[in-house]
Amino acid sequence: MSKDKNQTPSVAELMLDSQRTKPAFITNPNMDQVVDVVLRLAMEISVLRDRMDIYEKLSEENGFGGTEKIEAFTADESLQTKQSERREKLVQRILHDLSS
């Protein structure tokens, strides 16, 4: 973080500004709900990472290239729709946990 004073700070550094703290909006945080959400997210992320490792390994073993191919990949419309629907379902379930 200690950079030359003349150098423009990055957005990542601006976001870490100590004055950018979140005010308290929730007077009675229900920690049980928060734990529900954090664990659900951790579980889903873990599942995704495990599965992605398999794809990347298989892809490499079968000569389909690694990271470079992944970065160069463009999703077609049906995949975009599928991903967008899945994303929305995840957010809706989280918000349901937090608001029920």
């Binding site: 979140k22 909006f25 929730i26 007077t27 009675n28 229900n30 918000l95 937090l98 608001s99």
Partner: peptide, 10 residues
């Protein structure tokens, strides 16, 4: 209301 507080926080 918790719902309003949650909305604001989110």
């Amino acid at each position: 209301e918790h719902l309003f507080q949650l909305w604001g926080s989110a």
